[in-house]
Every structure is written in structure tokens, then in C-alpha cells.
Design a protein around this nucleic acid. Structure first.
Length: 312
DNA sequence: AAGACGAAAGTGGTTGA
DNA sequence: TCAACAACTTTCGTCTT
């Protein structure tokens, strides 16, 4: 594994080209909004955040005032998608009810025979709802949620789920899908919305990569920049500068073997100082999840090797 | 007093015999 | 399977602004 090649971004994105708008993303400021008419939403290609949902079919009886509210309300009606456990074609039976007479006995027997099928069905429904819940909390666009759901289907068809925690698997799948779509989340960010610890998520992650034979090229530091910059309240100039620094560092092979998040953090730290919008190492550390020590080490390397004078 | 610095020991994952 | 290894973290004392 000498030179890990970065494959084309968004390898799994929809076949139909989405309309790209030149409007600015209110979250990260990049001019890369994608309007997806099929899914009725607008999201940012750079930071992967959903800006608006239900853009074509906004009901007159409600308006969302923030995206939190919006994602909750947008979930109410079930669309016909992969995210419905049987593609939305079945009628759910109320298993808990005992009020009916007549065919109760037969029904019970049938229930027993299909008990296995029902419980795995139930766990599948739960898995999809978990994917949706976490994706919602991370404000991920619908196409990523669907890709995650499809991946879960695939894992299930290969019988990789039984005996494993659904939480671990779904968390790992979300992590994988974000990576595949070029809008990577850190393990820590996934863990924050998950109900299990990092250890279990990364175990499930490695397991899935192996069993499903998924190849994931290492994340580029650049993919983290827009989101981190926006979280630090930094301008577009700094985002561009940080990306420029990373590209140069990458040419000089300073990024080899280093963690992409640390590189991104250091580049942002440098770029912010150069443009007069100083952030402390702790500020950057809090947002990126890498320690100040690592930021220091990376930033020393970068500034020396690239001949960048950083005056505090 | 806050921020930056760097040494030293510890952690968890990868690799190669 | 295990030990060596590299990247990163934790901790902490010191220097700088």
C-alpha cells in the first residue's frame, strides 16, 4: 500500500446530475449548493449539510423556522423509498392486540412459525429508524440516508447482522457512507449521536469493510475543511487558504502516514493566523477532536517545510 | 492568566515474522 | 500469535505574551 490513491468523489451519488446552484451555503459559505429535485432538498456539496428540505412540496399549514424542526416535520409522511423496511408495500399487523376472536389460534401458530422472520423484520425496522435518527442529528442529506439504508440491506442479505448490535452496525454504516460520499464525519461525531462507544463502532466498521469487501480510500484532509471552518466561524478566505496549504503539503508528501484530521486542523490553524482571524489551538482542538499537541506537531512540520512564517 | 511549547509515558491499531 | 512500530493522546512543567 505505497501510494493510496484517492478515488473520485461521491462515487455512489445518483446517476442523474443534480442541479448545482451558485448560491452560498449559509453554513460554510462555499458556493456549492446542490438542488436535488427528486429528494426535494438542497444540500451543500462541500460540507454535506442539508440546507433546506421539502423545497418543492411545502405544505401551507406549517413552515419550519430552523432545520431541527424541519427535519422532524419532514419525516412525518412516509415516502416510498429504500428506507421503508419492505419498500412500504405491506400492512403492519397489530401483534399486541388480543381483542379478536375466531382465527386467534391459527394466527398464533403462524406467528410462531414466522417468529424468526418477524423479529429480524422488527430489528430491520429499528435499524432503519436508527439510521434516520442519527442522520437527522448529523443533518445529513437524504441521498446519504438512502445509501446507508441500502448498505444495511446488503449487510443483512449476507447475514452479517445476527448476533451483533444493531447500534454498532448502523453507526459504522453511517460512518462508511459519509466517507463514500466525500463528506466524512469523524468517529467522534458519529459516536456523539450513537448509543454505543467508539470502540464498538470501529470494530463494526472494520468488520463490515472486510465482510462486504468495501474499499475506502483514506479521507482527504480537504474534505473536513469546510465543516471545521464553519464550526469555528471562519471566513471563506480562510477555507480557501487552508485548502491551498493542504494541497501544497500533499505535493510535498507531508501528509503521508499522518491522520487527515490533524492535517486539516493544523492547516486551518495556520490559515486563520495568516488572515488575521486567530483561533487558539484549543479552539481548533475542541472542534476537530485532535489534541493541541498533534495540532502543534503538524503545524510545525507544515510551516517549516512549506516556508510559511507564522507570527502569533 | 491564558496561550503556546515540548518532553515523556501511555494507548490502540497495524504489520510482518 | 506476538512483538515491534508509528501516529496520536495524556499529562505536566516551562516559557511567552
Amino acid at each position: 500500500m505505497a501510494t493510496p490513491k484517492r478515488e473520485k468523489k461521491g462515487g455512489g451519488r445518483d446517476k442523474k446530475p443534480d442541479k448545482v446552484e451558485v448560491k452560498e451555503c449559509p453554513e460554510c459559505g462555499s458556493k456549492c449548493l446542490v438542488r436535488d429535485y427528486d429528494k426535494a432538498e438542497i444540500f451543500c456539496a462541500d460540507c454535506g449539510l442539508v440546507i433546506a428540505e421539502n423545497i418543492v412540496d411545502m405544505g401551507p399549514e406549517w413552515r419550519a423556522f430552523d432545520s431541527e424542526q424541519m427535519s422532524r416535520r419532514a419525516r412525518v409522511g412516509a415516502p416510498l423509498t429504500y428506507r421503508i423496511h419492505d419498500k412500504g408495500l405491506s400492512t403492519l399487523t397489530n401483534w399486541g392486540s388480543t381483542a379478536q376472536g375466531g382465527g386467534q389460534y391459527k394466527l398464533k401458530k403462524w406467528q410462531q412459525r414466522t417468529h424468526i422472520a418477524n423479529t429480524s423484520e422488527r430489528s430491520f425496522i429499528f435499524a432503519l429508524s436508527e439510521i434516520d435518527r442519527m442522520a437527522s442529528a448529523l443533518k445529513l442529506p437524504v441521498n446519504i440516508r438512502e445509501a446507508a439504508s441500502m448498505l444495511y440491506r446488503k449487510a443483512m442479505s449476507k447475514h452479517l447482522i445476527r448476533g451483533r448490535s444493531i447500534e454498532g452496525i448502523t453507526s459504522a454504516i453511517l460512518y462508511i457512507t459519509c466517507r463514500q460520499y466525500g463528506v466524512p464525519r469523524t468517529l467522534e461525531e458519529i459516536r456523539e449521536v450513537s448509543r454505543v462507544g467508539q470502540k464498538e463502532i470501529s470494530r463494526a466498521y472494520r468488520f463490515l469493510l472486510r465482510e462486504l469487501d468495501i474499499k475506502i480510500s483514506p479521507a482527504s484532509p480537504i474534505d473536513f475543511v469546510p465543516r471545521f471552518c464553519s464550526m469555528l466561524g471562519l471566513s471563506g478566505d480562510i477555507r480557501a487558504k487552508a485548502i491551498e496549504i493542504i494541497k501544497k503539503a500533499s505535493e510535498k508528501e507531508l501528509t503521508n502516514g499522518r491522520g487527515p484530521i490533524g492535517i486539516a486542523a493544523a492547516a486551518i490553524y495556520i490559515a486563520a493566523i495568516l488572515n488575521g482571524e486567530h483561533r487558539t489551538q484549543k479552539d481548533v482542538s475542541d472542534v476537530t477532536g485532535v489534541t493541541e499537541v498533534t495540532i502543534r506537531n503538524r503545524y510545525k512540520e507544515l510551516s517549516e517545510q512549506l516556508d510559511i512564517e507564522v507570527l502569533l
